[in-house]
Simulated assay, not measured.
Amino acid sequence: MERATELAAAVESSAEALTAVLESARLAQNPTVPPAQLRVLTIVAGNRHTNMSRLAEALDVVPSSASRLCDRLEATGLLRRVADPRDRREVRLLLTPAARRLLADLRDRRRQALGDVLDRMPAAARQDLLKALQAFEAAAVPEAESGEGLRTA
């Protein structure tokens, strides 16, 4: 079997290729949304109860930086701030229909770009990749959920 460091280098190289394919799909989108703003939209899409504090924490930035990102997204019609019905002192962040369309379009573009790459692979290699990715996820998820990090050996 290959040494763990050689395998890790191969995974890292593949991750970089994957990132390049996904970034190419993002850049082909019109309008192009900067990565930091796209991350905000993704965080808000994943949690119906995102407020400015939770967003700043998720981004690992100070609240004023998160607020400026939201200002830009609000100005482009991708984000709305509304009073939280549970606590009117809180401001909830909501995606607009335009943001939902943008995220759906990006997901479709990414899947198409990945599909194009996968189509160039032999069928047996695609099946092997699927099994390997499922095994990787199964090995990585328990540690990530428990906060212990990935196994080292």
Rank of each mutant, 00 (worst) to 15 (best):
M1K: 13
E2T: 15
A4E: 15
T5P: 08
T5S: 10
E6R: 00
E6H: 06
E6N: 01
A8S: 04
A8W: 13
A8Y: 13
E12G: 10
E12S: 01
S14I: 07
S14R: 05
A15M: 15
A15V: 14
E16I: 14
L18E: 07
T19C: 14
A20L: 04
V21S: 02
E23S: 12
S24L: 08
S24Q: 13
A25R: 12
A25D: 08
L27G: 08
A28V: 06
A28P: 09
Q29M: 11
Q29D: 06
N30M: 09
P31S: 05
P31L: 09
V33Q: 06
P34F: 12
Q37L: 09
Q37C: 09
L38D: 14
L38N: 14
R39W: 04
R39N: 12
V40R: 03
V40E: 05
L41I: 01
L41Y: 05
T42A: 07
T42E: 13
I43W: 05
I43Q: 07
I43C: 00
V44R: 00
V44W: 12
V44E: 05
G46H: 02
G46C: 04
R48M: 00
R48V: 12
H49P: 05
H49F: 00
T50D: 09
T50Y: 00
M52S: 11
S53L: 11
E57H: 14
L59Q: 02
D60I: 04
V61T: 15
V61N: 07
V62I: 15
P63L: 07
S64G: 13
S65H: 15
A66N: 01
R68V: 04
R68Q: 13
R68E: 14
C70S: 08
C70F: 07
R72E: 09
R72W: 15
E74M: 09
G77P: 07
L79G: 07
R80Q: 15
D84G: 07
D84K: 00
P85C: 07
P85V: 01
R86A: 12
R89W: 02
E90H: 05
V91C: 06
T96S: 15
T96P: 00
P97C: 09
P97K: 08
A98V: 09
A98W: 07
A99V: 04
A99H: 10
A104I: 02
D105M: 11
D108G: 08
D108I: 01
R109E: 04
R109H: 06
R111E: 15
Q112W: 11
A113F: 12
A113S: 06
D116L: 10
V117L: 08
V117A: 06
L118F: 02
L118P: 01
L118R: 00
D119T: 02
D119Q: 13
M121E: 06
M121A: 15
P122T: 10
P122Q: 03
P122C: 03
A123E: 06
A124D: 15
L129G: 12
K131F: 07
K131N: 00
K131I: 11
A132C: 11
A132K: 01
A132N: 07
Q134C: 05
F136R: 10
E137K: 12
A138K: 03
A138G: 04
A139M: 03
A139V: 10
A140Y: 01
E143Q: 05
E145H: 08
S146L: 06
G147K: 05
G147E: 04
G147Q: 07
E148W: 01
G149C: 11
R151V: 09
T152D: 11
